[in-house]
């Protein structure tokens, strides 16, 4: 069969793009769900994402194994998350402001140490061909799915189950809804929040490793342009539900794939406007899903942005 499928290439490229582009959104937002469920917000995940991308790429290059890269990125992300959690546990320290500072520090350190890794080529993460049944190269390209995407999807379901059915999930929800109730149950809220922020950071770091080790698949200083921030906003849209995060990430992935998809069929004017599409979509979604009083259904009650 010939590869000429005309304008059908656009929706097809968007489906493929949605799957490819959504993975970092998925990991960052799943991590942030856990953090926010404990009653903290970490706005610094954009910095963690960039640092994870650098650390993952550097380690994959040095060891030759992309999976060691993913682990390193998760470790580095966890370190940033724990730092955020520890600092915010000090009295009178504001979690939103610390997030802004760590965004700056994370990107700064990533660019600082990443300078040496812009040229070298690191091994990519493996992909699974789910498009083997089709002869069309476009379909095959669209359905080349990375292992991390599948892990992310399973993780969303697992985290939803964990929040609802396990003791850890219950602890997390109690801490997020009322520090006093948690203390009455003998739980230390600060400790739970530090761990939850560390976990969130680890997932954000893995999202970064996906960026540098699969798509786009190289390390440079423009690797993340706000995906970490969009993912944090996406959590509000997903109403703090891991499964909703999965679908929201796909939606934002499709929006992010709009520009490249149109470019692939020769539409090049207004490139920058298409590039801004995910940001506009995020803003629209935020406006639509917020409420005048500031109270959001499903929000953990200790969360500073909804108080």
């Amino acid at each position: 069969m010939s590869g000429d499928i005309g304008l059908w290439a656009v929706p097809l490229a968007m489906v493929g793009g949605a799957i490819r582009v959504s993975t970092p959104f998925l990991f960052v937002s799943l991590g942030e769900v856990i953090t926010e469920r404990s009653g903290r917000i970490n706005l610094g995940l954009e910095g963690t994402l960039v640092f994870g991308a650098m650390a993952g790429y550097a380690l994959a290059y040095m060891t030759g194994s992309p999976w060691i890269g993913v682990l390193a990125a998760a470790g580095a992300g966890a370190a940033f998350g724990l730092l955020h959690g520890l600092l915010c546990s000090l009295p009178r320290v504001n979690d939103i402001a610390i997030g802004i500072a760590l965004m700056l520090l994370g990107t700064g350190l990533a660019f600082f140490f990443g300078k040496a890794f812009i040229q070298p080529v690191a091994p990519d993460l493996p992909a699974i061909n789910l498009g083997w049944w089709s002869d069309l190269p476009q379909v095959q390209a669209a359905l080349r799915v990375n292992v991390l995407f599948i892990i992310g999807g399973l993780l969303a379901v697992a985290l939803a189950w964990m929040l609802k059915r396990t003791r850890i999930g219950l602890t997390l929800r109690v801490v997020g809804d009322s520090s006093d109730a948690a203390r009455a149950l003998g739980i230390r809220p600060a400790r739970v929040r530090i761990l939850a922020t560390g976990f969130g950071g680890a997932l954000a770091g893995m999202g970064g490793a996906y960026l540098s080790l699969f798509y786009p698949g190289s390390w440079n200083e423009g690797i993340s342009s706000g995906q970490g921030l969009i993912a944090v906003a996406l959590v509000i849209f997903a109403r703090w539900s891991p499964v909703n995060c999965f679908f929201a990430a796909l939606l934002f992935g499709a929006a992010g794939a709009l520009g490249p998809a149109l470019q692939s069929v020769g539409v090049t004017s207004g490139y920058y406007l298409f590039y801004a599409a995910p940001f506009v979509l995020t803003l629209v979604v935020l406006i639509a899903s917020s409420s005048k009083s500031g109270a959001l259904t499903g929000a953990p009650r200790e969360l500073s942005i909804t108080k």
Binding site: I96, A233, A276, V280, S290, G294, I305
Partner: peptide
């Protein structure tokens, strides 16, 4: 008017402004 978090909204608008 809509209770949108100003920190996130302003940073999103910065990305949009740079694209514009």
């Amino acid at each position: 008017w809509r209770g949108v978090n100003e920190t996130i909204a302003s940073l999103l608008l910065a990305y949009i402004a740079i694209a514009l």
